[in-house]
Design a protein around this nucleic acid. Structure first.
Lengths: 307, 307
DNA sequence: TTGAAAGCGCTAACAC
DNA sequence: GTGTTAGCGCTTTCAA
């Protein structure tokens, strides 16, 4: 049995396709008597009607599809995998509640298949933690007017809206939570170098007191240099690595991956509820519903909520 | 500037839309002289042509879209999050290399928005670890003929193709790798009860010697009951929890989440390379390319590769 | 209050 | 070899 179309319903309800379309879409300023309305709804149910979104997209010139562009890497750190999957999960939920469908695609710098943005007429795209040098790849595949929102990246390109933590605020909270004044910091190695710099400067500490996580060897060396100090460490998994070389009591962990349970009880911790997905989503909805009124700033700073 | 269409190219190259379509799609059995071919390709490049896949879908009656249906849960165990994200990553890569686009959507049993399958005319759908009672939700939204492949689930419904580990084989390997003959097993709590049963029976052990991970309390109790025994534990994260109550040397860990580095050095481990995504993908391609020749069995057992 | 019809961009059968 | 044309299923203007 073939899929029912508007035409089938029209025939069954003995009206025209136009009327069916009006009823099924609840078109305003079309007054349809309850009688016909019912007949149509009835027929639609009977025939198990499901709209064909490709056809709709074609005429509406918008797809109802939102893209999530993720980095593609063969081997990713655990924290990165977790962050991404949490982000994707939350965005997917928010978007689908609003009737959008989510297309997932990945950025492979060596073979960027970004045509999807224009081929599928994506209504908007979320991008996560992108290297500076890859931004032009994206922007070149971008049809003017499509909202592009970057999460976890700093980039000086006005095409992109940027959603990041308010790191100043987060550090202030972490410093307050710490027993002793922290005198070093260990942070995640984001792909986006601008973000790493931004985090560093937000901390207020000298760059020499900041370690960007690369591998266990260099982490170990850094910790040994700072044997007698206390510090702040961003992200649970980096903390786990650090605990091999340092006493938990000497570190305050900023839990940003939502799994503070994996770190030892002895460690001071401050858990953050990541509102970036929600903020990014709201921004997207604003841009989608009101394409003309662009927000003042291209940057959004999300306060990490201590919980 | 508006998006170029076939018509624009036709005008520019002074041919008809049909010819343009033939050239751009490399249609076989249409012999186009290199001359015109070049003119068309040239014009296409010039105008920055990108095909409109909605239009194509409409006429081809297939979307080029593959769905990945994931479970939606507010709070998910780490191992589950990681598994899903690894699976999604690998599927996405394989699919996009074949020119398919990936639509991500989630199953919320209380509000299943599965119309997407027929609305978007998905060419195929992957589903992961689904509760038995939710299968009918899915199958009812499924237009006959669309390949449905379930990973990590056992379900007695011939609509679905099933891809799972060959647990018998995996256990055999783990038993061999263990120092002492293991006399208990601790396994993940999959959503799909059928799978849990299948794993249990594949182990060859009595059900009383098998613990299905729920929470740390019951895990602890189980471990205390088996104080003097050695056992096998599925999945790194469950192992981490177990190590709070048991000596690492007494457990053999089957590393199925690809992060054996997080478990203590003292533990015996056997790492598995999960080929389920690849196998599921190949099955999907087979079904897509040859919709008539259905494989003999609805079940595929993937051997875990010890690495 | 309803319907006819144009057209979104593309493919493919068929005519020339 | 190349063009004409009929749709794919839907929205929406405009006329009745």
């Amino acid at each position: 049995m073939k899929k029912a179309t508007l035409k089938d319903i029209a025939k069954a309800a003995e009206v025209s396709v136009a009327t069916v379309s009006y009823v099924l879409n609840n078109v305003a300023n079309q007054t349809i008597p309850d009688d016909t309305k019912c007949r149509i709804l009835e027929a639609a149910k009977q025939l198990n009607y499901v709209p064909n979104l490709a056809a709709r997209s074609l005429v509406m010139q918008k797809s109802g599809l939102i893209g999530i562009l993720i980095n593609r890497a063969e081997l990713e750190e655990l924290w990165r995998q977790l962050r991404y999957s949490q982000l994707i999960n939350r965005l997917e939920r928010l978007l689908s509640d609003r009737g959008y469908h989510v297309v997932l695609f990945s950025l492979d710098a060596s073979d960027p298949k970004l045509d999807i943005i224009s081929e599928r007429k994506l209504d908007g795209v979320f991008v996560v933690d992108v290297k500076e040098e890859n931004f032009h790849l994206i922007s070149s595949h971008f049809s003017a007017g499509v909202p592009l929102i970057v999460i976890d990246s700093i980039i000086d390109d006005s095409l992109f809206y940027k959603v990041n933590y308010d790191y100043k605020d987060a550090f202030a909270k972490a410093f307050t939570a710490s027993q002793h004044q922290p005198n070093f910091i260990i942070i995640d190695s984001f792909n986006n170098a601008g973000l790493v710099n931004h985090i560093c400067s937000s901390s207020g500490l000298d760059r020499s007191l900041i370690h960007v996580m690369q591998d266990e060897q260099t982490l170990k060396a850094f910790l040994e240099q700072n044997k007698n100090n206390t510090g702040i460490i961003l992200n649970e998994f980096v903390a786990i690595s650090a605990y091999k070389y340092v006493d938990p009591s000497r570190l305050t962990v900023m839990c940003t991956t939502g799994c503070s349970e994996i770190i030892p009880a002895a460690a001071t911790r401050i858990s953050f509820d990541d509102r970036k997905p929600e903020e990014a989503f709201h921004l997207m909805m604003r841009l989608l519903e009101n394409p003309t009124a662009r927000p003042e700033s291209k940057y959004i700073q999300v306060k990490a909520i201590n919980n």
